[in-house]
């Protein structure tokens, strides 16, 4: 049994309707444009980045803060910490609420890790974003509406996988996050046409599964 979805769990969703200016600014908000914050924690960081970007497509919100926690959700500071805190900021509570709703919907029905081996101990994230929102456009130096393959796996598997992906499809690397990331993974943001991104994600997943099946090529 491989490539089975590992569904993320949304741990906490909270709104601060009128955030204190000091909190707003220290989390990257602009008191001139933002008044409300929406907070979300989840036990999977990369699906949450995707979900936060999804939120910017559904409401007038900006992703002002999104950081993974060190060593991932297995070493979380508490049961509600998970592996990431994402912060949406918007001009009013209604926009933020709509943004959070879109993010939760994305986490529950779309973005998730997959298991590369039978027991799912090797997790990979071969996600295709059909049309990116404001957050990924800003962070990846891309245009809103571009397609993107968001590829994550543990360091060894990811390196083999992203190499395979770049060779298999007509995609370019928008950003490569070499190991170790905060959660000790490695990641790549590849961009191209939608079909190229899909082909890249497939090649990546296949590469990761191959490494999982045969970790030691020398034997």
């Amino acid at each position: 049994m491989i490539l089975e979805p590992i569904l993320p769990t949304v741990l906490a969703v909270r709104q601060i309707h009128a955030a204190a200016p000091a909190v707003l600014t220290s989390y990257g908000g602009d008191p001139g444009r933002h008044a409300s914050l929406g907070l979300i924690t989840c036990d999977q960081d990369d699906p949450t980045y995707v979900a936060l970007d999804e939120a910017t497509k559904h409401a007038d919100v900006e992703v002002v803060y999104a950081r993974s926690f060190y060593a991932g959700s297995s070493h979380a500071s508490g049961p509600l910490s998970g592996e990431i805190l994402g912060v949406l900021a918007g001009p009013n509570p209604t926009e933020v609420e709509e943004g959070l709703r879109a993010a939760v919907r994305c986490l529950e029905h779309d973005a998730c890790f997959y298991g590369a081996n039978d027991d799912g101990s090797i997790a990979l994230f071969p996600h295709v974003v059909t049309s990116i929102g404001e957050y990924f456009a800003r962070e990846g130096g891309l245009e809103m509406g571009d397609s993107m393959a968001y590829l994550v796996a543990p360091p060894m598997e990811a390196t083999v996988g992203m190499d395979a992906a770049l060779k298999a499809a007509d995609v370019t690397a928008a950003r490569i996050f070499g190991p170790p990331t905060e959660t000790n993974f490695a990641a790549a943001w590849l961009t191209g046409t939608l079909s190229a991104c899909e082909a890249a994600a497939l090649a990546f997943a296949e590469g990761v599964v191959e490494v999982a099946r045969q970790p030691r090529e020398d034997r």
Binding site: M1, I2, L3, P5, H109, D110, A111, Y114, P126, H127, V128, T130, E198, A201, L202, A205, E206, V209
Partner: peptide, 18 residues
């Protein structure tokens, strides 16, 4: 989701029928 469809395809190709 698109990704789930892709992974379903890939599983079939890699001989995982369940």
């Amino acid at each position: 989701s698109t990704t789930r469809e892709l992974m379903t395809q890939l599983r079939a190709r890699m001989g995982c029928a369940d």
